[in-house]
Design a protein around this nucleic acid. Structure first.
Length: 460
RNA sequence: GUCCCCAUCGUCUAGUGGCCAAGGACACUACCCUUUCACGGUAGGAACACGGGUUCGAAUCCCGUUGGGGACGCCA
């Protein structure tokens, strides 16, 4: 049987790293087995759900390359289905009306917590049902005794004492259904075979299993993925910095690298670190997913990104880098020039943004001098070197690495200088900084005209 | 507090009872390459949380302890 899996985000925020990882594992599982991956928008929280967030999540999925099958499913469009299911439980005496107010419940919850107890609904309305005229939420009548056990692909058998659970609300007093209820109704009616989701849902699972049983529905396979933590070992959140996938896009990470890195958080295939998307699909399966939480490591992501970057042709790299250069106020006009420039810098940036920043000097009419670098190298000694160099370079007809190197070699000998003392003032004059590709290469790419212009400006 | 989950280098992980005096990768350090910075190369430090079992044999199985996390909503 081909698996059917889903990713079920609620549109109350942009797609974040944790969600992207969950979506990725579902997607890889479906693609590996030739199954179906569907997207369900859990928008029953009318207060916080927005169309903007929904679009943002969809855009994030698209950017990551996580293509979904079938039509999008919206929970808000399935209200009749939930109503029927609620009614069914009510008719069968498996649910009851509850008129306890949220304030009342909150007070009891706080009291229980203060007394060191697990907050649980006390069953007031289960014993004394409110009159039909009063407004009420609907609660599921959960068994008070016994044990609920289910199987998890990542963790094996997990069981909870039913006495730990309470009668959860399945419909609010305004009639809208709640999460633990819709999830069960949807997963069953959408014929999901595997529920792959974050570890934080593990505690919800026994409640959901009880609902499956109440409806006499078959129970799917569960796989609770270990969570992703920040460096402080707490659930990844805003205070850990960038959490939205778009922030990573803006930092210059490639979707394939994000996929690769995220896949390796909790999953592995021998000693392999770098995977193409095709390899990921081919090799991924849930039985190689571990159960230990992982800490998000930006440095490793950068390295993975650099490995993916290395696979691109120079022409592709130019296109990839263009938007980041634009953001720096730099426009690429000459394709050949751009390719030579980017090619010279490609080993020097682990992200597209870093690559753009390192390459920007090639394209600026007036480079920006780093004060420390200028002070150190554009001193009288440096200027003397630049003056002499300008004169000698000016006589050249050919302009390539070989002839430029010859000029530097001769100049070094004539002035009795080590190459580093010769190269650095020129480097600062050309790039504004002390860091760049080989100086002959930089000059060769810049061309005679730009080179002489920049020397003149450094001398000014 | 209660319940549930987790526990191999700083980090991601390999390991499914003997092939492990624990392997790879990121990061770090040193050296090489070298006109700077990278890239690349070589070398190095660095882990089975602790205590009991089971077994001829345990990183691997069981129990406990400790530590960490998650959940305890008319949020999802």
């Amino acid at each position: 049987m081909k698996p059917r899996v889903r990713f079920a985000p609620s549109p109350t925020g942009p797609l974040h790293i944790g969600g992207a990882r969950t979506a990725l594992f579902n997607w890889l599982f479906a693609r590996h087995h030739g199954g179906t991956f569907v997207l369900r928008i859990e928008d029953t929280d009318l207060e916080r759900s927005t169309k903007e967030f929904e679009q943002s999540i969809l855009d994030g999925m698209t950017w990551m390359g996580l293509t979904w099958d079938d039509e999008l499913v919206y929970q808000t469009q399935r209200m009749p289905l939930y109503k029927d299911h609620v009614q069914k439980l009510l008719d069968e005496g498996k649910a009851y009306r509850c008129s306890c107010t949220p304030e009342e419940l909150e007070t009891k919850r706080k009291a229980a917590l203060a007394a060191g107890q697990k907050p649980k609904y006390d069953g007031k309305c289960r014993k004394n049902p409110p009159p039909a005229s009063t407004p009420a939420a609907i609660r599921f009548k959960a068994p008070e005794m016994g044990t609920t056990t289910f199987h998890d692909i990542c963790r094996g058998t997990i069981s909870f004492e039913n006495s730990e659970l309470d009668d959860l609300i399945i419909a609010r007093s305004d009639g809208t259904p709640t999460y633990n209820f819709t999830v069960v109704v949807d997963d069953v009616t959408m014929k999901m075979t595997h529920i792959i989701r974050g570890d934080d849902h593990l505690n919800n699972t026994p409640r959901q299993v009880l609902l499956y049983q109440a409806f006499n529905y078959p129970i799917p396979e569960f796989a609770h993925l270990p969570m992703i933590y920040g460096p402080d070992r707490k659930k990844l959140s805003k205070r850990h910095g960038a959490t939205s996938v778009f922030e990573y896009k803006d930092m210059g990470f490639l979707p394939s690298a994000m996929m690769n890195y995220l896949a390796r958080l909790g999953w592995s295939s021998g000693d392999q670190e770098i995977f193409t998307i095709e390899e990921l699909i081919e090799k991924f399966d849930l039985n190689q997913v571990g159960s230990t939480p992982a800490i998000f490591d930006l440095e490793k992501l950068r390295w993975v990104n650099s490995q993916h970057l290395a696979k691109y042709s120079v022409a592709d790299l130019v296109n990839l880098t263009r938007p980041f250069l634009q953001q720096l106020g730099v426009a690429l006009t000459d394709q050949t020039y751009a390719e030579r420039a980017i090619a010279s810098e490609r080993e020097r940036g682990k992200t597209l943004k870093e690559l753009a920043e390192a390459s920007a000097f090639y394209f600026r009419d007036e480079i920006v001098f780093d004060p420390t670098a200028a002070e150190k190298w554009l001193n009288p000694e440096g200027k003397k070197i630049l003056t002499t160099l300008r004169d000698r370079l000016g006589t050249l007809n050919d302009w390539n690495v070989d002839v430029i190197k010859a000029i530097f070699d001769a100049l070094g000998k004539d002035m009795g200088l080590k190459m580093v003392n010769l190269a650095q003032p020129v480097r600062v004059a050309m790039t504004g900084t002390t860091v760049s590709p080989g100086i002959y290469e930089v000059l060769a790419i810049l061309g005679k005209e730009r080179t002489l212009k920049r020397i003149a400006r450094a001398l000014a």
